[in-house]
């Protein structure tokens, strides 16, 4: 490619793009389904938001880690279910399937975990599919809490005799 051709390339490409743009605008103006030049309202874009999902270790309901002294228990079920049954010392953080845990609640939770000097955070939920405990565990782990586990089968499995 000679220097003359090289210097000609960019203006020529710009001219071709401009001609194509004019053709596009003309066709768009003439066609019944043409787009307005500027969208008046934002497009409804349906893209699932990336979920903050961290690492969680699954535990069986009879796992010795549940009997370890330095653990912080979180019950991810609703208040009513928590009142009916919960592991001793568990705090109730109902998992919301639609909205993430508010940052202020997460900070409070992190403070409580730190104050308890726990080395492991254990979450249990309704044991369903999907399991609220596993999801809450992934959420808080993805947002900064470390050494998070969840109980497979959740509260029903713990109630069925697996509870420590």
């Amino acid at each position: 490619m000679g220097a003359r051709e090289r210097s000609r390339l960019v203006p020529e490409a710009a001219a071709v793009a401009a001609a194509a743009a004019l053709l596009a605008l003309a066709v768009n103006a003439l066609r019944p389904a043409g787009l307005p030049l500027v969208a008046r309202t934002p497009y409804e874009v349906l893209v699932p938001c990336p979920e903050p999902g961290g690492l969680v270790v699954p535990l069986g309901p009879g796992d010795p880690a549940l009997r370890a002294p330095r653990k912080f228990l979180i019950d991810a079920r609703g208040k009513e279910a928590f009142r009916r049954f919960h592991l001793p010392g568990a705090v109730n953080v109902p998992y919301d399937w639609l909205d993430p845990l508010p940052a202020s609640e997460l900070r409070q939770l992190a403070r409580e975990v730190a104050a308890s000097r726990a080395t492991r955070v254990v979450v249990y939920g309704d044991g369903g599919r999907p399991d609220s405990g596993e999801h809450l565990g992934r959420e808080i782990s993805g947002r900064g809490l470390r050494h998070v586990s969840f109980v497979r089968g959740g509260a029903p499995a713990l109630e069925d005799g697996g509870a420590p």
Partner: peptide, 27 residues
């Protein structure tokens, strides 16, 4: 909609790009 989904361009530029780009591709 595909162009808007990328979330890169301001709304004012979504339609011009959606109108012009395919014709540049075609040409």
């Amino acid at each position: 909609v595909d162009v808007a989904t990328y979330g890169i361009l301001p709304l004012a530029l979504v339609n011009p790009v959606a109108i012009v780009l395919p014709w540049v591709e075609l040409v």
